[in-house]
Amino acid sequence: MTPVLEARDITRDYHVPGSLFKKSRTVHAVKGVSFSVGEGKTLAIVGESGCGKSTLARIVTMIDPATSGDLLIDGRRIDIATEPLTADMRSKVQIVFQNPYGSLNPRRKIGEILTEPLIINAKMRADEREARAMAMLKKVGLEEKHYGRYPHMFSGGQRQRVAIARALMLNPRLLVLDEPVSALDLSVQAQVLNLLADLQSEFQLTYVFISHDLSVVRHIADDVMVMYFGEAVEYGSRDAVFNDPQHSYTRTLFAATPRVDIEAIRARLARKSAAASGASAPAAL
């Protein structure tokens, strides 16, 4: 079976033009990354700021072209630098952004936001479009009465639901989720993660899930890729990566993630009281 998304040796260079005092230079944002995701699966791309994960997201979403390498969607090679995208290809990959406050047009009603992709890409009657939007609204856990409201009337979690609904309007095969829950509160984060899981099983969606939060990744991912300065330093199934990390950076990342289990807290408090008594003991002598 052909994977929904396959990337072979993707690179992306940025040319930083020189000025009077600086020489022009080239920044390698992504340095030869390869991966593939099968239908209905989730690939998580993990890394810290500046590791190239968002650049990669823009390449996969066909917003920016790759400098070199092959991007295959449903087995078809895509190169937006040389040929314009067809509406069909466009609608196969959609994106959900991190910040739910910037990703919805503040001057448009929810209904207009949802029907816009259909107006552009599909020949459909207005009432048909509206019915589709209403159905999608309910699917993501919102109500029909929200159709005529503006984005500023919604909470962050509800906006993220609208953003997800909008991305699904064109029935995409692949959804790129660029830190979709990191701007949300814990309780809302849980709701959105549940929603994403439900939608994935209902529509057989494939996810590329970009995140810096390892606990979320562990919860949602099938495969994990860890990026560090533009390189994929670790790539494998979730269990393999979490149970037996190979690269030292992956191990650093795991060690830095705060632990919320009771043993960890107990150990910390014990260390603390030991340090306190150690510090006061010489004084007592």
Binding site: T61, L85, A87, N99, G102, S103, E116, I120, A163, R166
Partner: peptide
């Protein structure tokens, strides 16, 4: 982001 989103939708 909303402008990029519109672009991805094919605007």
């Amino acid at each position: 982001d909303y402008v990029v989103g519109s672009r991805v939708a094919g605007a």
